[in-house]
Design a protein around this nucleic acid. Structure first.
Lengths: 349, 349
DNA sequence: ATGAAAGCGCTAACAA
DNA sequence: TTGTTAGCGCTTTCAT
């Protein structure tokens, strides 16, 4: 691997000044065609691959990179279709603008990336259980910050979702069907993703904004709902939580369960199946997200459909606007209630 | 957003030279504790967030970023669990080394990223249908290149998989069961991912290395096998391909199908189901990959299990070694045949 | 239309 | 232990 030729070398060979060569390269600017051609020839001969992005970054004060911070390990994060949709939406916008996406995970003490990777802006997704620290670091660096579904935070542009209202809608649907005893399976509420019954002081310990909001929405309608916090947004975690809520005498068990994600809902349905309960005959189940495809196994889930890709696009757009120095539009998305086949009136007993 | 303070400013405030401040910051180097403290205090007062990564990149000639090139849109790429596993393996190694992963897609004319993003090395994954161009660009830039399951290419460090041999193993399994008429559902073979029967001149038009190798493996055992090229590695594409191969009179239809991915295999099984064929009674199905989890829907697929995460780790390690200037170890992985419940002797007819 | 010069913020020699 | 110096490769005034 030869040392990479520099623009200076090209200029020298072409017999022009460095600045002229630079202009000739960028295409724009007043350069005679003859000169342009000579520069091109020289570049070709030397195998010049274009301006060094590192030098460009320094000179222009821009790296062309947008960081995306994900809380978990990639394999976990990508297990949830919502994250993928979100990322896809972001990539859609930023890719079109010529910016690359730098994937940063926040696992362990791996603050390295977030505190020192070259980036022009940062988008925080799915990292609600440890927002503060990330934000503190990034803010110190003076980078524009966009956060998807995070608690309002000084200097952070929010991309929101109507988690509380939408969840309340789902709950009211159950109420209108006649359910009076329901359970909630929440997404992880705190940093320590330990599955466990919802503690009484959850409001105090909860650091995950999305989970808390969705929970509040349900409690708005069913203040007495019992809850169980799942360990992750996976089918397996949902199943576990479902088994926990459905354990015991049939008469003492909830007649409906609101799950905070569709994957959790599928897990709950599976749990119901395992304990011999029919959905929706014996148990109604409501999800959240509106995922499509294979994982559903043909189930028409009653759920709240959120515009995940659009959310991603908005986040990407906001990041681009912020780093352009312009004011960015905070966005607020609305979920749509989808009445599916997993809810029905409770069996009279 | 104030202009970001520079190291020079910190040094001035602390009353030391810039180089001393630099050393004090990096922790290493001989600096008195008193000085260190003063520098720290100054940094604190100014809100200095550490060295500017852009300047560091230029000075050190390293950006700390490793590019990962994916052929398709993210949403497509992430639909295949193998890609996620691969990425996870890569992230595992590179993350530990403090390098970030820059996600680059190769969609459309978006060569921007790959030709000008700041990176120290690049890993090509799942982009076998348009390898050459990508490699040409990157090689020009003088970046170390690692390619996963790609055709041997000058200056590209290969991370291989025994695609041909493993596929042959799967085929021989079918032969030993007594099958004589089999079909193959291949992954996309060319750039234009159009689903269609395998053309006679596939060897000439195929640009996808993995698909071609797996196909050769099957043809080594069944030279007469009929093929159908799927449009992607998805269940739906597999179903489509399956329906195509299983159309027509039961007597003229293959008794076994080798699918080049597990997702395709599941699709084929679904197709079989739709045309009223029982797996494995009426039709044996072999997959490739060894995915686990929900998508399988409880099916114990006969397949070839590849070490995807390990492959990713090897790719990450290789990239790191290359950019350290050291020689890197090409790696070659082996798939393990897993005899599952989707293959059986053909029904006598 | 072209050239000269001044840094972007940092680090790594080398000197003191 | 600390300071001085010289760039990394490029872009952007400003002058010609």
């Amino acid at each position: 691997m030869r040392p990479r030729p520099t623009l200076a070398a090209v200029a020298r060979l072409a017999g022009v000044s460095v600045s002229t060569a630079s202009l000739a390269f960028s295409g724009a600017g007043p350069v005679s065609d003859a000169t342009k051609a000579r520069v091109a020839a020289a570049a070709d001969e030397l195998g010049y691959a274009g301006p060094d992005p590192r030098a460009q970054s320094l000179r222009r004060g821009r790296s062309g990179i947008i960081g995306v911070v994900i809380e978990e390990r990639l394999s976990d994060a990508f297990r949830d279709p919502m994250n993928i949709a979100l990322l896809d939406g972001i990539a859609d916008v930023t890719g079109a603008a010529g910016s690359g996406l730098l994937l940063l995970t926040e696992t362990g003490d791996d603050r390295a990336g977030i505190s020192s990777a070259p980036m022009d802006a940062i988008i925080l997704i799915g990292c609600s259980t440890s927002l503060e620290e990330a934000v503190a670091i990034v803010r110190q660096r003076g980078l524009p910050i966009v956060a998807v579904e995070a608690r309002e935070l000084e200097g952070v542009l929010p991309i929101g979702l109507d988690n509380r209202a939408a969840s309340a809608t789902g709950a009211r649907h159950l109420r209108s069907l006649g359910h009076s005893d329901i359970g909630v399976v929440t997404l992880p509420l705190e940093r320590s993703h330990v599955p466990r019954p919802l503690p009484a002081d959850w409001e105090r310990v909860a650091t995950a904004h999305t989970s808390a909001e969705r929970l509040r929405g349900v409690l708005d309608v069913y203040p007495e709902a019992r809850g169980f916090a799942a360990s992750a947004s996976t089918i397996e975690a949902g199943r576990e939580a479902g088994l926990a809520l459905l354990a015991g005498d049939r008469a003492t068990v909830p007649t409906a369960i609101v799950a905070q994600s569709d994957l959790l809902a599928i897990g709950v349905i599976r749990a119901a199946d395992e304990v011999g309960m029919i959905v929706p005959g014996d148990l109604s189940v409501v999800g959240f997200d509106g995922i499509r495809g294979e994982v559903l196994g043909g189930i028409d889930l009653t759920t709240l459909v959120q515009p995940a890709v659009e959310k991603g696009r908005a986040a990407g757009r906001a990041a681009l606007q912020l780093l352009d120095g312009g004011p960015a539009e905070p966005a607020d998305f609305t979920s749509v209630f989808h009445p599916g086949g997993t809810t029905a009136p409770p069996r009279t007993r």
